[in-house]
């Protein structure tokens, strides 16, 4: 299979707590790949390793570059910045620049990275805003946007440099059903129409089942299951079943580890 990103035997620790312990994961080119898992399994950390903001303790995160694969962990600062121009990322809370209006937020990467004149920047920004349905909101400030609109603006901004890889960090959290439908459609359409590769980090099982082509479930620092969403739903693994069905108790216990309850109450 033609992969854009290959992650092999990835180890990473944060303050002695292992986040990844031998994670293997491939991101196929041109597909929407979902990375799922309970909260705190390091899904966002994984995105930060793909963007080169964090480095692996051991193992490799490699990205297709020309004919071969480049290990992101070995790149120097300038090379990482060059690499990031091929990526766009959508943050959970949009991360729009609060002192700029919607238009300028989308124009920001163009103004900062390219030397394009205003008369070219304007149509590019308007096209991206039109694609997410918010051309009419170009003059609004980020504080005037709803959560769903903010995320769509952030998406226009992520697309404005025409990246080949789009990363989504929890794109569905906190959205009303209509905004959710809009975001789902936008992710699918931009991926297919623009020929992108998309990585969606999420723990919203239903949405992922509707959206993703391929799906990884991460728990305990490793990929415990992967496959098309329909296949995962029929998984044999208790943990995957618990996760896909949203059961409160199972291999991931409801209770945080604690001592004996009666003794605790008695104050011993």
């Amino acid at each position: 299979m033609d992969n854009l990103i290959e992650i092999k035997n990835l180890h990473f620790k944060r303050a002695d707590r292992p986040i990844f312990a031998g994670l293997d994961l491939d991101i196929p080119r041109g597909k929407v790949t979902a990375i799922m898992g309970p909260s705190g399994t390091g899904k966002t950390t994984l995105l930060r390793m793909i963007t080169g903001q964090l480095r692996a303790g051991q193992g490799s995160v490699r990205i297709a570059d020309g004919d071969g694969m480049t290990d992101i962990g070995t790149l120097d600062r300038d090379a990482i910045y060059r690499l990031r121009r091929r990526m766009g990322m959508l943050f959970q809370n949009s991360a729009l620049l609060t002192d700029l209006d919607v238009f300028e937020n989308v124009a920001f990467p163009l103004r900062e990275i390219t030397d394009l004149p205003d008369r070219l920047i304007r149509p590019i920004v308007l096209m991206k805003l039109e694609a997410v349905g918010l051309r009419g909101a170009a003059g609004l400030m980020p504080s005037e946007l709803s959560g769903g609109m903010g995320r769509r603006v952030a998406m226009a901004r992520a697309l404005v440099m025409d990246p080949e890889l789009l990363l989504y960090d929890e794109p569905f959290s906190g959205l009303d059903p209509i905004s959710l439908g809009v975001i789902l459609r936008l992710i699918r359409e931009t991926n297919d129409v623009l020929g992108l590769t998309s990585i969606v980090v999420s723990h919203d099982v239903e949405e992922i089942a509707r959206l993703a082509d391929y799906c990884y479930v991460i728990a305990e620092g490793r990929a415990i299951a992967h496959g098309p969403p329909a296949e995962l739903a029929r998984s044999e693994s208790d943990l995957v079943r618990q996760f896909m069905a949203g059961a409160a108790d199972g291999p991931v216990p409801f209770h945080y580890p604690a001592g004996d309850f009666a003794r605790d109450l008695a104050g011993d």
């Binding site: 990031r84 991360a95 729009l96 901004r157």
Partner: peptide
């Protein structure tokens, strides 16, 4: 609010 992080990812 991740604005600095967002800039880093935008290669700024």
């Amino acid at each position: 609010t991740d604005q600095l992080s967002a800039m880093e990812v935008m290669a700024i």
